[in-house]
Nucleic acid binder design. Sequence first.
DNA 1: AAAACTCACCTAATCGATTAGCTGGGTTCG
DNA 2: CGAACCCAGCTAATCGATTAGGTGAGTTTT
Lengths: 350, 350
Amino acid sequence: MATIKDVARKAEVSTATVSAVINDSAYVSPELRARVLAAVRDLSYAPSLAARNLKRGRSQLIALVVADLANPFFSRVVWAAEAAVAAWGYSLLIFNSDEKPEVERRILARVRTLSCDGVILVPVGDSTEHLQSDPDGKPIPTVLFGRTVAGDRSDTVTIDNISASRQATEYLLDLGHTRLGTVTGPLHLTTGRGRLDGMLAAMRSRGLALESRYIRSGEFREDAAYSVARSLLEQPSRPTALYVASGLMALGVMRAVADLGLRCPGDISIASTDTIPGIGGLRPRLTRTEHPLVDMTNEAVRLLVDQIRRGGPAEPRNVVFQPSLVVGDSCAPVVARSVASPLSSSGSGQ
Amino acid sequence: MATIKDVARKAEVSTATVSAVINDSAYVSPELRARVLAAVRDLSYAPSLAARNLKRGRSQLIALVVADLANPFFSRVVWAAEAAVAAWGYSLLIFNSDEKPEVERRILARVRTLSCDGVILVPVGDSTEHLQSDPDGKPIPTVLFGRTVAGDRSDTVTIDNISASRQATEYLLDLGHTRLGTVTGPLHLTTGRGRLDGMLAAMRSRGLALESRYIRSGEFREDAAYSVARSLLEQPSRPTALYVASGLMALGVMRAVADLGLRCPGDISIASTDTIPGIGGLRPRLTRTEHPLVDMTNEAVRLLVDQIRRGGPAEPRNVVFQPSLVVGDSCAPVVARSVASPLSSSGSGQ
DNA sequence: AAAACTCACCTAATCGATTAGCTGGGTTCG
DNA sequence: CGAACCCAGCTAATCGATTAGGTGAGTTTT
């Protein structure tokens, strides 16, 4: 690889001049500029980022740390983030904390040594102390994505979880369902907890309660959702409708429903928050709330770049996006009988 | 951020000693070692990768350049690659060439200036000259993934496309289908072309031909598959079974089938290569061939790390994985009438 | 006991950029 | 006319690590 010295020698100028031409950081006469550019081309010179970064103290790297790369939701975030980050001139590093706080800690240490300019983090722990690079040093610019952490002062980009589950729940209630159940995420996460809370609020405001035996939470995974959904649905009297807190979980629930020989929406209605893109040709089509994922990701990157540019965090900004309901055909009106005597209709399926 | 000098000063040793302790690159007496480690801890020192990389000429970075990040297939590759790369001590940069050769070119230039230690590339162009870092310089260690490029001398990791489509096709033929159609990928890609060829070969060996009006190719995208499938299925006499060359395309085909009011497998059987993970609870369940994606990705990373370690490419290695058929319920035996008089049964579906 | 080795550690050059500060020729102004 | 100023371009310090080569004390060899 040619270095700046080779270019300088070939163009018969100093390295400072080459640098000035390359970075447009000072006026250089047209003649020298042309000589430099010719030399750059001839040697097919590309500046070493390692050297540049060492001197400048930045790296043009943004890290995206997601909680579970196997979840299609986060895959889409990766997709959107790659584009957004590239548009700002950065490159994207991907890390998977796999929902493990200690892995997250290791990753953030590595992010530090790689001197990434910023991090977009889907936090899995309940603390973000480790975001501080060290006691004295300044923290790495950070934007929390999707989830928040109590007491943290980073920028955040989230959706309104309460509203998401409320919308889905109200849709089910409007169809006449009263015996609802839910498969939600871990309750120590704002996404899992918030989506349960919104559902509870929606039911309460109609004077209904959510029976605790109809509430299940598990990790945001297909298999976890499958098993909690199974145990939920195998109870003697099962709910007539379910709200599921994630698209991936909805798949697990669907599989449980299929394996139990139940029909959706015939035997049970299902509404979720988020879905798996592209499955519109399969049956049933999920009724769900959708997040403006691309906008959210763009906003996260914008906030992060802003932090990087201003060189330190300002007053923390919390951007909340609104989900919207998309109706499929996984929900059906409850049959009159069930409404009239909810406790007696235990064997409707099969 | 503390530097190695700060550590050296605090531990009252030279920077060389600190470096030796950190890298275990030379014997250091227990006493000094302890002093150094204490200083490292107190200052919470982490070596600057920028400086280290500049000196060492490597970066601990591996780039993964995929053809379409929006495709769940590649999302899974990202997931598997992140884990594999981390296990070898590298970090993963993600780039999306979006099937555009000129974007790929730009990305590879950037990969060079970032001085990535290696690249896993899903090539979109038909040339890999730009893999050469420059006329004289040595090329970046590279492994081509999924697709190959004629005349290239990199290591490659692929599946046996011929076998994949042959297995799926034979399954359909065994069910009695004779009027087959296909929705495959772009024919200039080894994946699109190979999967068509395997199908043709399977049919030929049974004395059958694949009518050209039943052959459609399009980009490996859901929407592209949707539209070519629609135009394929809207023809006066449509095939009784389809082979679809990718999981994402299968979703598009399913949507087209649904929109046309056809039932799968009642009106049309569908078999594909690859699927979308987790959709086992939705109907129909795809009959498809599956690749050992995780093994493939691990192998790609292994080959790449091997190239990096040996410092230059050896004789190119081409590893081909075998797909296996997984039966769902998207295919049905053809009804006797259709087998007897294939040309007369135009209006069987809706 | 002097020569020859080891060993543990240090000094200083080096990687390839950026950039503060200098230089010397040309303008401007009092 | 000389002082003050500008300006393009250069010299050399610098970023923070690694590492070749050096040093002096202790050990072995003859």
